[in-house]
């Protein structure tokens, strides 16, 4: 039992014909070939599969394909603009926020959405905003540094700087 599902994926209108009950994560990774979105737990506990749905962070491992219908979806592959890295991505690179990198796409997605909503956050607010994204490598310190740095890049200053 398949259905045609239409949505916007990283700025391009697409459609996919699939079982609407499949996980959105699998559709993105297997059908669309966008393997940047990661699966770390499969049940909404780690944040590795975070994507933007109409600008809000959603966990694609607990979303069905049907829930993509008519939505504006951004994955890690669509975060950067015309070939340029997003400031969050640049800061992650420059501030040493990347180790194994498996949580990184989800972290970047969450950080982008957070900085859109809160352009000059305090360090504690960044920690709170990222608390749904687990990382086992970094101890989060350099990730928080990177988000602080990205806030400065995007908006000319964090609350503390």
């Amino acid at each position: 039992m398949t259905r045609k599902i239409f949505f916007v994926l990283n700025g391009i209108s697409v459609h996919v014909e699939t079982d609407p009950a499949r996980r959105a994560l699998d559709v993105l990774r297997e059908d669309m070939g966008l393997t940047g979105t990661k699966e770390g737990c499969g049940r909404g506990e780690c944040g590795g599969c975070s994507i933007l749905v109409d600008g809000e962070v959603k966990l694609s491992c607990i979303m069905t394909a049907a829930q993509l219908e008519g939505k504006d979806i951004v994955t890690i592959e669509g975060v950067c603009g015309e070939g340029d890295l997003h400031p969050v991505q640049r800061s992650f690179i420059e501030r040493g926020a990347v180790q194994c990198g498996f949580c990184t796409p989800g972290m970047v997605i969450s950080s982008v959405a957070f900085l859109n909503a809160n352009p000059s956050p305090a360090r504690e607010e960044i920690r709170e905003a990222l608390s749904g994204n687990l990382c086992r490598c970094t101890g989060y310190q350099k990730i928080v540094d990177a988000v602080e740095d990205a806030a400065k890049k995007m908006h000319g200053g964090g609350r503390d700087g």
């Binding site: 994955t75 592959e77 975060v79 890295l85 690179i93 040493g96 990198g101 970047v108």
Partner: peptide, 13 residues
């Protein structure tokens, strides 16, 4: 910066 950071931060790795 680490040389593997770019491919990881863009989801390409």
């Amino acid at each position: 910066p680490r040389l593997d950071a770019l491919s990881k931060v863009t989801g390409r790795e």
